Amino acid sequence: MSQTSTVKTRILIISDTHNAALAPSTNHDVAFREPLPKADVLLHCGDLTGLGFLEEHEQALDMLGRIDADLKLVIAGNHDISLDQKHYTRRGQDWHGFDDPDQTYAARAKELWQGEKAKAAGVTYLEEGTHCFVLKNGARLRVYASPYQPEFGDMAFQYADNQDRFNPKDQSTPDSQSIVENPVPDFPAVDVMMTHGPPLGILDDVGRAHAGCEHLLRAARRCKPKLHCFGHIHEGWGARRVKWKEGDNFYIPWKYHVERYESVKVDHERMKADRAAFVDISQDGEEALVWGRETLMVNASIMTVEYRPHQGPWIVDMDLDKATNNAQS
Rank of each mutant, 00 (worst) to 15 (best):
R165C: 15
A239N: 04
L73H: 14
C229K: 09
A209V: 12
Q103C: 06
D205Q: 12
P309S: 07
L203Y: 05
R218S: 14
K119Y: 07
H28M: 05
I233N: 03
K169T: 11
A107K: 11
S2M: 09
W244L: 07
V192Q: 04
L48S: 14
R165A: 12
G52F: 00
D161M: 15
F187K: 13
A23S: 10
K72W: 03
P150G: 06
M63I: 05
E116L: 08
D191P: 01
D280F: 04
T324N: 03
Q177P: 02
V305L: 12
H196V: 04
Q103K: 12
Q3A: 13
V41N: 00
R10N: 06
H215C: 06
N167L: 12
P188S: 14
T26C: 02
N162F: 08
Q59T: 15
T9W: 09
A211W: 15
W254P: 13
L12V: 06
K169P: 05
K110W: 13
D16E: 07
A31Q: 02
N325D: 12
H210N: 15
D164P: 03
K169Q: 13
R270N: 08
H87Q: 15
T6G: 05
V184G: 06
H96Q: 12
V74W: 10
E127Q: 15
E269S: 05
E127Y: 12
W291I: 10
V298Y: 08
S5P: 02
K38Q: 14
L12P: 10
L12N: 03
Y251M: 11
Q171I: 09
G153C: 13
G312F: 00
K72A: 07
E286R: 10
N325T: 12
R142L: 00
V190F: 01
C223A: 14
E128D: 08
E127V: 11
T124N: 08
H96A: 03
G65Y: 04
G212M: 04
D161R: 15
F152D: 15
N167E: 06
L227R: 13
W244K: 09
R260A: 12
P35K: 09
V190S: 03
R270K: 10
V264T: 05
G238I: 07
Y148F: 15
C45A: 14
H57I: 04
Q59D: 14
I67T: 04
L73T: 08
W291K: 13
W314C: 03
D154P: 03
A21D: 07
G65A: 13
E259W: 01
P168Y: 13
I75L: 08
R142G: 01
F53C: 05
M303L: 14
Q149R: 11
G115L: 09
P174G: 04
C45V: 08
F278L: 06
L126W: 05
H257K: 02
S329N: 14
E116G: 05
G231C: 04
G138M: 04
L200I: 07
E246Y: 03
P24V: 08
L71V: 14
L42I: 00
F98L: 02
K272Y: 02
L200H: 15
L36D: 00
A107V: 09
A139R: 01
T49M: 01
G201N: 05
H228D: 02
S176H: 14
R208P: 07
L200F: 15
V279P: 03
E246N: 11
L22V: 04
R270F: 04
Y256N: 10
P313N: 03
H310G: 07
R66A: 11
W291S: 14
F230E: 10
P309A: 07
V41G: 00
